[in-house]
Protein backbone atom coordinates (compact mmCIF):
# COMPACT_ATOMS: atom_id res chain seq x y z
CA UNK A 1 0.00 0.00 0.00
CA UNK A 2 2.74 2.38 0.94
CA UNK A 3 4.45 2.09 -2.41
CA UNK A 4 1.51 3.52 -4.29
CA UNK A 5 1.41 6.78 -2.31
CA UNK A 6 4.10 9.23 -3.28
CA UNK A 7 4.69 12.89 -2.76
CA UNK A 8 5.00 14.60 -6.10
CA UNK A 9 8.28 13.49 -7.62
CA UNK A 10 9.55 12.13 -4.30
CA UNK A 11 10.59 8.65 -3.42
CA UNK A 12 8.63 5.83 -1.79
CA UNK A 13 8.46 5.46 1.96
CA UNK A 14 11.54 3.67 3.08
CA UNK A 15 13.75 4.08 0.09
CA UNK A 16 16.87 6.08 0.59
CA UNK A 17 16.69 9.23 -1.49
CA UNK A 18 18.96 9.00 -4.48
CA UNK A 19 19.28 12.75 -4.83
CA UNK A 20 18.71 15.75 -2.59
CA UNK A 21 15.01 15.59 -3.36
CA UNK A 22 13.00 16.00 -0.16
CA UNK A 23 11.32 12.79 0.91
CA UNK A 24 7.92 12.21 2.37
CA UNK A 25 9.59 11.67 5.71
CA UNK A 26 11.30 15.08 5.56
CA UNK A 27 7.90 16.58 4.98
CA UNK A 28 6.44 14.80 7.98
CA UNK A 29 9.32 15.91 10.21
CA UNK A 30 8.92 19.52 9.10
CA UNK A 31 5.16 19.49 9.50
CA UNK A 32 5.45 17.96 12.97
CA UNK A 33 8.10 20.46 14.02
CA UNK A 34 5.98 23.33 12.72
CA UNK A 35 2.92 22.21 14.65
CA UNK A 36 5.08 21.68 17.73
CA UNK A 37 6.66 25.12 17.43
CA UNK A 38 3.24 26.72 17.07
CA UNK A 39 2.02 24.89 20.15
CA UNK A 40 5.05 25.88 22.20
CA UNK A 41 4.73 29.51 21.13
CA UNK A 42 1.04 29.70 21.99
CA UNK A 43 1.74 28.27 25.44
CA UNK A 44 4.75 30.50 25.97
CA UNK A 45 2.95 33.72 25.14
CA UNK A 46 0.55 33.77 28.13
CA UNK A 47 3.48 32.95 30.40
CA UNK A 48 5.40 35.93 29.03
CA UNK A 49 2.51 38.37 28.69
CA UNK A 50 1.45 37.90 32.30
CA UNK A 51 4.46 39.99 33.29
CA UNK A 52 3.26 42.98 31.24
CA UNK A 53 1.22 45.69 33.02
CA UNK A 54 -2.09 44.26 34.16
CA UNK A 55 -5.47 45.80 33.42
CA UNK A 56 -5.66 47.57 36.79
CA UNK A 57 -2.20 49.03 36.26
CA UNK A 58 -3.17 50.29 32.82
CA UNK A 59 -6.37 51.73 34.29
CA UNK A 60 -4.24 54.04 36.43
CA UNK A 61 -2.32 55.35 33.49
CA UNK A 62 -4.02 58.73 33.11
CA UNK A 63 -4.23 61.48 35.72
CA UNK A 64 -5.76 64.94 35.76
CA UNK A 65 -3.89 67.85 37.31
CA UNK A 66 -5.43 71.17 38.37
CA UNK A 67 -2.95 73.95 37.54
CA UNK A 68 -4.85 76.86 39.06
CA UNK A 69 -2.97 76.73 42.39
CA UNK A 70 0.52 76.81 40.84
CA UNK A 71 2.12 80.28 41.03
CA UNK A 72 4.34 81.67 38.30
CA UNK A 73 7.87 80.44 38.95
CA UNK A 74 6.64 77.50 41.00
CA UNK A 75 7.40 73.88 40.17
CA UNK A 76 5.36 70.89 41.37
CA UNK A 77 5.83 67.15 41.07
CA UNK A 78 2.95 64.80 40.42
CA UNK A 79 3.06 61.02 40.25
CA UNK A 80 2.05 59.38 36.98
CA UNK A 81 2.31 55.58 36.53
CA UNK A 82 4.59 55.54 39.54
CA UNK A 83 6.95 58.11 38.01
CA UNK A 84 7.46 61.78 38.85
CA UNK A 85 6.18 64.34 36.37
CA UNK A 86 7.57 67.87 36.70
CA UNK A 87 5.17 70.74 36.06
CA UNK A 88 6.91 74.10 35.79
CA UNK A 89 4.94 77.35 35.67
CA UNK A 90 7.70 79.21 33.86
CA UNK A 91 8.52 82.89 34.24
CA UNK A 92 8.81 85.03 31.08
CA UNK A 93 12.61 85.11 31.60
CA UNK A 94 12.80 81.32 31.71
CA UNK A 95 10.75 81.06 28.53
CA UNK A 96 12.98 83.63 26.88
CA UNK A 97 16.08 81.74 27.96
CA UNK A 98 14.72 78.49 26.55
CA UNK A 99 13.87 80.12 23.22
CA UNK A 100 17.22 81.83 22.87
CA UNK A 101 19.16 78.55 22.64
CA UNK A 102 20.67 77.68 19.27
CA UNK A 103 18.98 74.39 18.50
CA UNK A 104 21.81 73.22 16.26
CA UNK A 105 24.12 73.09 19.27
CA UNK A 106 21.91 70.67 21.19
CA UNK A 107 22.70 66.98 21.49
CA UNK A 108 18.97 66.23 21.15
CA UNK A 109 17.82 69.11 18.96
CA UNK A 110 14.35 70.35 19.78
CA UNK A 111 12.96 73.88 19.89
CA UNK A 112 11.20 75.00 23.02
CA UNK A 113 7.97 75.32 21.04
CA UNK A 114 8.08 71.62 20.19
CA UNK A 115 8.19 70.78 23.88
CA UNK A 116 5.25 72.76 25.21
CA UNK A 117 1.59 73.31 24.48
CA UNK A 118 1.22 76.60 26.39
CA UNK A 119 4.62 78.34 26.74
CA UNK A 120 4.19 79.10 30.45
CA UNK A 121 3.58 75.41 31.28
CA UNK A 122 6.43 72.97 30.88
CA UNK A 123 5.40 69.36 31.58
CA UNK A 124 8.19 66.74 31.54
CA UNK A 125 8.80 63.30 32.99
CA UNK A 126 11.20 63.86 35.90
CA UNK A 127 13.49 60.99 35.07
CA UNK A 128 17.05 61.60 33.99
CA UNK A 129 17.56 60.12 30.54
CA UNK A 130 20.96 58.84 31.59
CA UNK A 131 20.18 56.08 34.11
CA UNK A 132 16.91 57.01 35.65
CA UNK A 133 17.56 59.19 38.71
CA UNK A 134 15.21 62.06 39.58
CA UNK A 135 17.01 65.34 38.84
CA UNK A 136 17.11 68.17 41.43
CA UNK A 137 15.49 71.54 40.80
CA UNK A 138 11.91 71.21 41.92
CA UNK A 139 12.47 73.15 45.15
CA UNK A 140 13.84 76.69 45.04
CA UNK A 141 16.70 75.63 47.33
CA UNK A 142 17.82 72.87 44.93
CA UNK A 143 20.85 73.04 42.72
CA UNK A 144 19.38 73.72 39.26
CA UNK A 145 22.62 73.20 37.36
CA UNK A 146 24.42 75.52 34.97
CA UNK A 147 21.37 76.19 32.75
CA UNK A 148 18.75 77.03 35.36
CA UNK A 149 16.64 73.96 34.69
CA UNK A 150 17.48 70.76 36.54
CA UNK A 151 20.60 69.06 37.73
CA UNK A 152 20.92 65.31 38.15
CA UNK A 153 23.08 64.50 41.18
CA UNK A 154 23.78 60.93 40.13
CA UNK A 155 26.29 61.55 37.36
CA UNK A 156 26.04 65.30 36.83
CA UNK A 157 23.64 65.90 33.95
CA UNK A 158 22.45 69.51 33.46
CA UNK A 159 19.09 70.38 31.91
CA UNK A 160 17.91 73.82 30.77
CA UNK A 161 14.60 75.61 31.39
CA UNK A 162 13.02 73.59 28.61
CA UNK A 163 14.21 70.33 30.22
CA UNK A 164 16.75 69.75 27.45
CA UNK A 165 19.98 67.89 28.14
CA UNK A 166 22.88 70.38 27.94
CA UNK A 167 25.82 68.94 29.80
CA UNK A 168 26.82 65.65 31.41
CA UNK A 169 26.11 62.09 30.29
CA UNK A 170 22.35 62.35 29.64
CA UNK A 171 21.83 61.65 25.92
CA UNK A 172 18.26 62.92 25.55
CA UNK A 173 16.01 65.73 26.75
CA UNK A 174 13.61 65.04 29.60
CA UNK A 175 10.67 63.27 27.97
CA UNK A 176 7.45 65.15 27.38
CA UNK A 177 4.49 62.89 28.27
CA UNK A 178 1.28 62.84 26.25
CA UNK A 179 -1.01 65.42 27.79
CA UNK A 180 -3.77 67.81 26.81
CA UNK A 181 -5.48 70.87 28.24
CA UNK A 182 -9.06 70.04 29.22
CA UNK A 183 -9.55 73.60 30.49
CA UNK A 184 -7.07 76.50 30.61
CA UNK A 185 -5.93 75.32 34.05
CA UNK A 186 -6.65 71.58 33.90
CA UNK A 187 -4.51 69.01 32.12
CA UNK A 188 -4.85 65.27 31.64
CA UNK A 189 -1.60 63.35 31.43
CA UNK A 190 -1.50 59.98 29.63
Amino acid sequence: MAESVQVGGGVGRDEKPKSDEPTRRDFLYLATAAVGAFGVASVAWPLIDQMNPAADVLALSTIEVDLSQIEVGQRVTVSWRGNPVFIDHRTPEQIEEARAVDVAELRDPQTDAERVIEPEWLVVVGICTHLGCVPLGQRPSDDRGAFGGWFCPCHGSHYDTSGRARRGPAPLNLAVPDYEFLEPTLIRIG
Binding site: W45, L47, A54, A55, D56
Partner: peptide
Protein backbone atom coordinates in the same frame (compact mmCIF):
# COMPACT_ATOMS: atom_id res chain seq x y z
CA UNK B 1 3.69 33.79 42.85
CA UNK B 2 4.64 36.85 40.81
CA UNK B 3 1.16 38.26 41.45
CA UNK B 4 0.04 36.70 44.71
CA UNK B 5 0.19 38.50 48.08
CA UNK B 6 0.47 36.29 51.17
CA UNK B 7 -1.36 38.46 53.66
CA UNK B 8 -4.81 37.87 55.12
CA UNK B 9 -5.92 41.36 54.07
CA UNK B 10 -4.76 41.04 50.47
CA UNK B 11 -4.59 37.33 49.53
CA UNK B 12 -8.19 36.98 48.33
CA UNK B 13 -8.07 40.23 46.39
CA UNK B 14 -4.71 39.42 44.85
CA UNK B 15 -6.19 36.18 43.51
CA UNK B 16 -9.21 38.05 42.14
CA UNK B 17 -6.80 40.47 40.53
CA UNK B 18 -5.03 37.53 38.89
CA UNK B 19 -8.40 36.38 37.56
CA UNK B 20 -9.52 39.76 36.26
CA UNK B 21 -6.59 42.06 35.59
CA UNK B 22 -3.36 40.13 35.06
CA UNK B 23 -2.83 39.23 31.41
CA UNK B 24 -3.87 35.58 31.00
CA UNK B 25 -4.01 35.34 34.79
Amino acid sequence: AMHYTAHVDHAFESVERIMRDVNYG
